[in-house]
């Protein structure tokens, strides 16, 4: 009964917005990437600078209280790219500064993004073990 009473999320509209905004963020990333490669940087270094640029942009928009207003409409379009990961670290750091810089900023920074780092690393260790033993 509670399922029936719930209003329908406008899935197609949300998907389109996520596609457009997410696509745009990746296009900006590709722009930086192509530029760096044109300057003669390696693929790894160019990729790192691309990530850093997008993270910087996301942190800035988070600080100016803009990222959440874009995300309200873009949904996964701002969640899935690396900018969403950055927002997940920057927003609790900013929000919990009143609880101090050690247990507020320092600890809360990882409250949403921590699991991503942990389980990403864990998966890479499992993969590494398989490679080291059988590879």
């Amino acid at each position: 009964m509670s399922q029936k009473a719930a209003p329908n999320s406008k899935l197609w509209r949300n998907m389109l917005l996520a596609f457009l905004v997410g696509g745009l963020i990746c296009t900006i990333g590709q722009g930086v990437m192509s530029w760096m490669q044109a300057l003669g940087l390696s693929r790894e270094d160019g990729g790192a600078i691309t990530s850093i640029s997008l993270i910087f942009l996301s942190a800035l928009l988070t600080g100016f209280n803009c990222y959440d207003n874009i995300a309200k409409h873009a949904g996964a379009g701002t969640l899935v790219p690396i900018t969403g990961f950055a927002n997940a670290m920057v927003s609790p750091a900013l929000e919990f500064k009143r609880e101090g810089f050690i247990l507020g900023v320092g600890a809360k920074m990882f409250s949403i993004a921590g699991p991503v780092i942990l389980y990403g690393s864990a998966a890479s260790v499992v993969y590494g073990l398989i490679l080291a033993i059988f590879g």
Binding site: A76, L79, G84
Partner: peptide
């Protein structure tokens, strides 16, 4: 919001319910 859900600056989408 900051106690029960997410930091205010966090870009989450609220479901229609």
């Amino acid at each position: 919001e900051r106690q029960f859900r997410f930091p205010l600056e966090y870009g989450g989408q609220r479901p229609p319910t």
